[in-house]
Nucleic acid binder design. Sequence first.
DNA 1: TTCGTTTGACCCAGT
DNA 2: TACTGGGTCAAACGA
Length: 330
Amino acid sequence: MGDDDRDIGGIVRSCNISRPNNVVTPNLDLKVSPNDVWNSSDKYLAPDMTSFNGLSEIFSLDFPIARRENSYDQVIIMNQNINQQLYLHSIQPVQFIQQIIVPQSRTSVACVAPTTTTPHEWINLQQLDIGANIYPNFNFSMMTPLTQTRTRNNQSIRLTYELLQEELKNDIWTWRKYGQKHIKGSPFPRNYYKCSTSKHCEAKKQIEKSPKDENIFLVSCSGEHNHDPPMNRRYLASCNGNSKFKLPKGINILPKASILNASTSSSKRVKDSRVVASPIIATNPPLEIGSKNKMVVEIVQNKGDGKEKVDMNEDIFMGFDQLQGVTTST
DNA sequence: TTCGTTTGACCCAGT
DNA sequence: TACTGGGTCAAACGA
């Protein structure tokens, strides 16, 4: 894309990390996980994040000669050989996302597993073929889909998820609404979205309220993004903000009767009949679907006076077990 | 001017 | 073949 706004360390991939609600800020002291299933590197990297179980199995980052820097809410793990840095830091006190700069060469990157699956299971499910520039349609993909069907033309798989309202906004992709239909048997309309980042992107998304529980949204995704996530400075800045949650724009949550009543007053447009009108855009904080917390993991490479994307030809994969020899400094 | 939303019309697969 | 309903298009409109 060549967008200047995207020079902030390149493209970022984000995934979920779940933590107990009562954990506020990463405590960088070593602790033993309550369930005691961490290995030493897990404890070292995220000592009080109990859901980081198996972290070292999920990430394989090559930091053979690394050191750790502790700050208020951040851990920096540096590979002094190839000038790589791994940042672990909280965005908000109780929210953590994990973000990885998209590598440029063919590499598999696995994101943190949801608490309901083991790291191994989750890796098998959710490995991203980043080198081939294939991105999941949306970041909910780390969840277990409610249903899996095929699209009408039978060309792609459609995964349907049940999401809470507040989880809808956690999407790194930008979407443009292209249709809305009333679905038989459901009091709520279905909204159709296409990826708006690229005209050639095939990713689509449908959002509708669950007829069983109007607090639950049924989100169906099909197709895959063939481009980088729409990250820019504005977007990243918003990630650090504490913007109040707003329902994604364009999602019409009025039940059918309400819509009909509203529309009968106008021959054409139903002006302002919508409850909400904001696009599902990346100005929202990203990537915490189904989780209460998030952690950022950034990998940047310092070359000269600027930061560049990590060249994945330089293996960033290895076990965190190899971080045993990491030294700490401030 | 650009981009996103709305919404009726149209397309098409399934029955 | 006709009907039904889900999916998509595109003009009109708004921000």
